[in-house]
Structure formats: C-alpha cells, structure tokens
Design a protein around this nucleic acid. Structure first.
Lengths: 236, 236
DNA sequence: CAGTGGTCTAGACCACAAC
DNA sequence: TTGTGGTCTAGACCACTGG
C-alpha cells in the first residue's frame, strides 16, 4: 500500500474516503457521535483545518449532522438527494451522439390569458409571446416546447422570430441567471402532442414545467413534453 | 451601510454575494475572465484562502468555470441543476401536516422473474421478496409502492412481514447507505393502480423508480406510483 | 459558561495546463 | 516553462448552543 502515502501529507479527499468508509462499513454506524475535530485531526495526522474541510464535505454529502457544541453525529438516515442537471435540450441530444434539429411551429403575441396571469403573477393586459417549438434527435421528434415569455419584462422577445434559434438558448444568453421553479409531472397527451410526438390521445407524457423570474419579475413559463418512453435518470 | 462592515473582517459569504452580484448584475457578464485570486483578495481586503473558498463555492453554484493556469471564467450558461430531496414517504406526508397511514397489500416470496434478474443483474433462481404497499395521507391513498427485495443480499427480509413497518423505513435502518439509480417517468395506470389510487385505466401516473445496490450487490427495486395530479417540485 | 464547530490569516508547496 | 488554481499548516478568534 505504498501508494497511499505517496504524498506523505494526508489530503482531505483521503480523509473523506476513510470517514465515509467508517460510516458505511466501519465502526461508525447511524447515530454515532464522532470525536471532536482536534482529536480526529490528531488521529489522522492532519491539521484541524484539513479535518474540518473533510468533515464539512462529508456532511454536504448528507452523511453527517454537525452542530456547534453538540458535535458531529452520523445521520440516522442519510439525506438522499437526487441531482438532475438541466442542460439545454441541444446539449442533451448531442450528448447521446445524435444530431440536433429545431423547428418553430407557431409564434403569436397576445394578451396573457387569465390562467397564465395567475400562474406568473402578471398584471392585467400584460402582453406575452407564445411559442410552440419542436426539438429533434436524428430527425425524430424528441421534445415539444410550449413557451410563454413575458414581453413586459423582456421587450426584446417581441423582436425575435425564433425561427432558427430556440427560445431556451436565446433566453439563457439574454437573461443569464434567474430564480427557477421546476416541476416534473405526468400529463395526458393532448391534440398538439399527438400531432408532433409519437403519442396517442390520452397517452401518459412525461412533462417538465419550468417558471423563471428575474429580479422579481416573471420572465417565462415553459412546458416540455417528451416523447414516448422518456425517462429522467440519475445516480448517486 | 454601516452594517456591512460590522465584522471588520470580510467573511467568505459576503465575498460570495458580491461576486454573484457582479456576475448577475454587475460588470462580469458571461465569458468574462476574472482576475487571479491574489489580485481579487487584495481588492476585497481578505486573504487568498478566503477568496479561494468564495470562488470555489460560487463555482459549485454553477456560475464559474475554474481551471489551473487558465484562470476563472464566468460560464456562458450556468449549469442549471435541480436538486430533489428524496425523503421517506412518511416524512413527505407528515411535512404537509397530514396524518400518515400505511397498509401492506401483498407479500410473496418467489424466484426472480427474468425481467427483474436482467434489471438488477441477479443470478438464476435468485429468491426475492415482492411487496405491494399503500401509503396514505389523511386516510387518502397517496402512493402505491411496488417493491422487490433481493433475498440473497438481504436474507433478513425473509423474516420481516412488513405488516406495520414499511419496507422503505426498514431498509434505510438496515442497509444505511447504498448506490442508487433513480428515474422519473410517466406510466399508464394499470389494474393495480386503478384499484388503489384515484386513477382510471390508462391514466397518466407519475412514477419514481429506484434501484439500489450495496457493496456491488443489488438490494432492491421499487416503483412508486403517485396519486392523480401529483407533481414533484423544487426551486433554485 | 464552556465546549464544539465556523472561519480567517499568512505563508508555503504542489499539480495541472496553456503557451 | 510558468502562471494559476488546489491544498496543507499552525495558530487564532468567534459564534452558537447544550448543559
């Protein structure tokens, strides 16, 4: 095991690995109260700073619960958190090796319907841009995008025709960062989905709904309907 | 603004806030190459260590891309990642203020069917426990749990009857930590779901499928079918 | 009130990658 | 080769909170 001590100085990653192992396989079962940072640092032969970093990161993994004065305790049940990266559709498709395609199906400017005003908290008579787009993977319809953009917050949207650049890509380039609320849900395929995706009327469709705000103003609401059999998967 | 300088010493959180602000509103637009850590530390009046921590954490938020020698650059599009905490059903229900209820619908021990063997990589003739459970919120069916447990990896499961304690809670107490693959999908309601949830045959059902391993051995595969209208939501 | 984690500092060496 | 981030250290003070 000469390789382990290659540095001579213990790195916080090695410390982390050992801690996780002690929790998952070793003597530190759920509920265990760990020794203090100073004592652990001594045992591991590192500085308290390094031990602190290791413990902090293990804690962020969901294994530990740390409180001043109370000490560091192994969680009874780890905080299981799934992390989904939400790439632009283009990246998601190209990552599989497929060729990405885009098509604008419809574009209209209108006064926000009541349900949308309620959903995003828009003023009466607010004008919005409504888009319907299709994203392809190797020529096959992959995702149907139904998007509303608040023209009050983003007047530039009125001048965009979105015929070649998808609204998502345009938006991330225009409104770099924003507050987001995202939902996953199962919906029944409606006529529009049937027309463009491989679905029959009423089929279960996996949908992602995303509403975003920027500086307290609603920017956009989008529903992404996926093709038959789509799953959103992750590991941890 | 006397409050800002209350500490006299700049904390890394304050530095973070300022950096994020410069990115989202200030002069550091997408693609900007930031000054080096030393220079920034000087400008902010903190040590390089603190500046490093601030930049590292902002980077973990998805705003920055850091490379040795290349420097720190503002991402063109921030990495949008949704983070879902996957609590035990009981917690999820009790958090809404509702009273949790549990019922075991069926339990059987059998040889793993082929599709399951393939899905989890089990040996031929592997024995599994198959459970069907229902979780209630205020007496109303909330989630249908269809679970398979690999008896080869977890012989104790054969002795549990799961009549009062749900398999999920039993498992997290028995196999504390494991590798997990999780998927979200939309399925069509089958007869079992129709019988126990508020669905008609073929209705779209939001399902979570979770497979877990422990020390390279498959432990369990579960499908959680949710009641009508269920959404999984998060903000960031 | 006292113990534990939270954080800051100054200085140092190292590893990676762009040039 | 060399600049930039990555990490370690020893020591210090602070803030929260359990007893």
């Amino acid at each position: 095991m000469a390789e382990i001590a290659k540095h001579e100085t213990t790195t916080f990653r090695e410390v982390m690995a050992e801690i996780v192992q002690r929790i998952t396989e070793g003597p530190w079962g759920p509920g265990t109260l760990l020794p203090g940072e100073v004592e652990l640092a001594e045992e591991f032969g590192c500085s308290r700073t390094t031990m602190n970093r290791a413990l902090r990161e293990v804690s962020e993994l969901g294994f530990l619960d740390r409180k001043r004065k109370a000490g560091t305790r192994v969680r009874m049940a780890p905080i299981r958190q799934a992390r989904f990266e939400m790439p632009v559709v283009r990246s998601e498709i190209e990552k599989t090796g497929a060729i990405y395609g885009y098509q604008l199906l419809a574009r209209e400017v209108l006064v926000a319907p009541d349900w949308l005003r309620g959903r995003l908290g828009l003023k009466a008579r607010a004008r919005v841009v409504h888009l319907l787009c299709l994203h392809f993977a190797d020529g096959v319809a992959f995702q149907l995008e139904d998007r509303w953009i608040n023209a009050g917050a983003l007047p530039m949207a009125l001048e965009q025709n979105f015929s070649t650049v998808g609204p998502n890509e345009w938006l991330v380039a225009t409104v770099p960062f924003s507050e987001v609320e995202i939902s996953f849900l199962a919906a029944a395929a409606d006529a529009v989905m049937v027309a463009h995706l491989d679905h029959a009327l009423g089929d279960p469709v996996f949908c992602v709904e995303r509403a975003t705000w920027w500086q307290n103003a609603a920017v956009t609401l989008v529903t992404l309907a996926h093709r038959r059999g789509y799953r959103m998967t992750t590991r941890y």
